[in-house]
C-alpha cells in the first residue's frame, strides 16, 4: 500500500519535472527565435511604426521597404546582389580547397609512414589554436608587397591550410579507412593520387559534407580579413555590405535596414533548417570551430 503511494508520488513528481523542463526548453527556443521573428515582422513595417515598440503582427510595408532599399543602395558602390555574388566567389572555392586539401593532408599522415610524420601531426595540432587576428598585420604587409591587396586570392588560397579541418578528417579516417582497401587499389595498379581520389574520398563523403557546410558558413560570415584586404567598394562581400547598413545613411530609415538584414539572414536560416541534421550531428563530432 505504502509502496504504491510512493510510486504514485514518484510518477507525479516525474510529471511535474517534465512539465517544468518542457516549459523552460520552450522558453529557450523562443529566446533563440524571437530576434529573427522581430526581424521578419519589422521588415514588413513602416519605419515610424517600428519606433512604437515590438509587434508580432506583420504589416504591409514590405514591398515599400524593399523599393526604398533598392533606391538607397544605388548610392552605394556595392549593391546587395553584387555583395552576395562576391561572397559566393570567395566562399565556394575556399570551401572546396579547404575540404579537399585537408582530406589530402590527413590521408598523407594517416596512410603513409615517413620520418616527419609525428612532427607534422604535432605541428598541425599546435597551430590549430593560432587565430587570424594575430597574424593579420604580417599578412597584410606581405600581401601589400606582393600586390595582392584588394584581390580575392588572399581570401581564397590560405584555405588550403585549415588545421581544424585536417584534425577532423584524420579523426574520421582513423575509424573508417582501412589500409587493406588502399593496398587492394594499389594491386589493381591505381596510382597513389588516384587511390586517394577514387577510393578514400568517396569513403570520406559524410565527413567531407559536414566539414564543407561548416567551412562554407565560416567563409560566408567572415568579416575580419575582408575588412582589411578589400579596399574597392565594388569588391566587398556580404558582411561588409551589412557593415554599411550601420552608417547614418541607413540609420534614419529602419524599415530599409530590416529588409536588408532579412535578405542576409532568412536564406541562411532556410539552408540551415534543410541541413540541420548534418550540422547538429557534426557539432557533436567536435567539428565546429573552423
Amino acid at each position: 500500500m505504502a509502496d504504491t503511494k510512493k510510486l504514485q508520488s514518484y510518477s507525479a513528481n516525474q510529471r511535474t519535472q517534465k512539465i517544468i523542463r518542457g516549459v523552460v526548453c520552450i522558453l529557450f527556443c523562443i529566446l533563440s527565435l524571437l530576434p529573427f521573428v522581430l526581424l521578419v515582422m519589422n521588415a514588413t513595417r513602416a519605419s515610424d511604426d517600428i519606433q512604437m515598440g515590438v509587434s508580432l503582427i506583420p504589416s504591409g510595408h514590405f514591398l515599400e521597404n524593399w523599393k526604398n532599399l533598392m533606391i538607397k543602395q544605388q548610392g552605394m558602390q556595392v549593391t546587395l546582389w553584387s555583395a552576395v555574388r562576391n561572397s559566393m566567389i570567395v566562399s565556394a572555392p575556399a570551401t572546396i580547397l579547404a575540404v579537399y586539401f585537408s582530406s589530402m593532408t590527413a590521408y598523407g599522415i594517416q596512410v603513409y609512414d615517413f620520418k616527419m610524420k609525428k612532427a607534422a601531426w604535432a605541428f598541425i595540432m599546435a597551430v590549430m589554436m593560432v587565430p587570424n587576428q594575430i597574424t593579420i598585420i604580417g599578412f597584410y604587409r606581405f600581401m601589400l608587397k606582393l600586390g595582392l591587396v584588394d584581390n580575392y586570392i588572399p581570401l581564397i588560397l590560405p584555405a588550403i591550410a585549415a588545421p581544424a579541418v585536417v584534425f577532423f578528417m584524420k579523426q574520421y579516417m582513423e575509424s573508417t579507412l582501412s589500409i587493406e582497401m588502399i593496398e587492394a587499389a594499389r594491386i589493381d595498379g591505381a596510382g597513389e593520387l588516384k587511390t586517394f581520389n577514387r577510393i578514400a574520398m568517396p569513403i570520406m563523403k559524410p565527413a567531407v559534407a559536414t566539414q564543407a557546410i561548416f567551412q562554407f558558413i565560416a567563409q560566408w560570415n567572415n568579416l575580419f580579413t575582408p575588412t582589411i584586404m578589400l579596399t574597392t567598394d565594388t569588391k566587398k562581400t556580404l558582411p561588409l555590405f551589412v557593415q554599411m547598413l550601420n552608417s547614418d545613411q541607413f540609420r534614419v530609415d529602419y524599415g530599409v535596414v530590416y529588409v536588408a538584414l532579412f535578405v542576409t539572414v532568412v536564406p541562411l536560416i532556410a539552408v540551415y533548417l534543410i541541413l540541420s541534421r548534418y550540422i547538429v550531428a557534426g557539432v557533436a563530432l567536435g567539428g565546429v570551430k573552423g
Binding site: P35, N221, T264, I279, V280
Partner: peptide
C-alpha cells in the same frame, strides 16, 4: 537542439546590426 543552435550559423555582422 536545432533551434538553440540556429543563431550560431547566422552571419555575426547581421546579428550585431539587428
Amino acid at each position: 537542439k536545432v533551434i538553440t543552435y540556429l543563431p550560431s550559423v547566422i552571419t555575426a555582422a547581421s546579428i550585431s546590426v539587428l
